[in-house]
Nucleic acid binder design. Sequence first.
DNA 1: CTTATGTCAGGGTCACTGAAATCG
DNA 2: CCGATTTCAGTGCCCCTGACATAA
Lengths: 163, 163
Amino acid sequence: MVGLDFDPIDEAARQWAGRWDAVAAMRAVTSVMRAQQLLRARLDGVLRPHDLTFSRYEALVLLTFSRRGALPMGKIGERLQVHATSVSSLIRKLQTSGYVERVQHPEDGRAFLARITPSGSDAVERATADLTAAEFGMGALSESDLNGLFDVLRKLRQDAGDF
Amino acid sequence: MVGLDFDPIDEAARQWAGRWDAVAAMRAVTSVMRAQQLLRARLDGVLRPHDLTFSRYEALVLLTFSRRGALPMGKIGERLQVHATSVSSLIRKLQTSGYVERVQHPEDGRAFLARITPSGSDAVERATADLTAAEFGMGALSESDLNGLFDVLRKLRQDAGDF
DNA sequence: CTTATGTCAGGGTCACTGAAATCG
DNA sequence: CCGATTTCAGTGCCCCTGACATAA
């Protein structure tokens, strides 16, 4: 959009080097932050026509992959690594879009299952087609770049206790 | 926190592979999103005692590196790649913390300069010490991992027109 | 007059905390 | 009674759009 004639992160790293330590870590962290910002903007743009955000899309995909198309709220939060209150509002929004419905848990009376609807399955299929066509915003990277990125970030996630 | 006994992203990729394309891109994108979330939580935790968030810290560092410790609002947004309104609120919060002050632009009457205060400089030094001690949350990665991460994400940023 | 700078008002998404109700 | 599940109310943060005053 803006189009600077230099890389602001690299420029910051250059000045950083004369004053503080951990240059490589600082440069990598800032890159992750900025990359996420760019990716989210791109993906949300692709998903907006489908009345989805990336978070909601992830939840729908998770339900698509679940055996009976339904999961208790707690499980969803566990898998997506988000807070219970966030799951609650996420599912509520998917519900108002008609992509998900709430059903009582067959055994646990206090729990709800979020179940994907036919309309939700349809939305996932169409959204996924658009996202893959857009290469998930990662068209600039090669297959080995993508796999290397995953491997490195997995170390980070593992270190943080994600799994 | 939660501690699943498997990697949810890898598990999603496995199921994804039987149904859709672009598995590597999807896996990489999801990893970036999750990594950013983890890093932000860690860094904001380190920065909270200093009355800073990562965004505000970035702004303070930028001012620290600027020649006279002061920059017009527009320049700040350009460098940090954020909207003018975001810069406005960012600087306002730094101002209430006493880390920044607003001064009139010497030549342009409509423009303001954000200038870092001695208290702000002190906060940057102390916050940076804490962040480097925490290795910016990237202690799990080697130096070559960090540099590789930067290189790959730079391709992404360049492709998005960042610079 | 047109353009650029910065602010405010307001909306959207997401994350978290704390309190509450429900049920095992 | 204790603990787990979920929801609601409220807060904070960040991003964006649109309207506006001000000055180049």
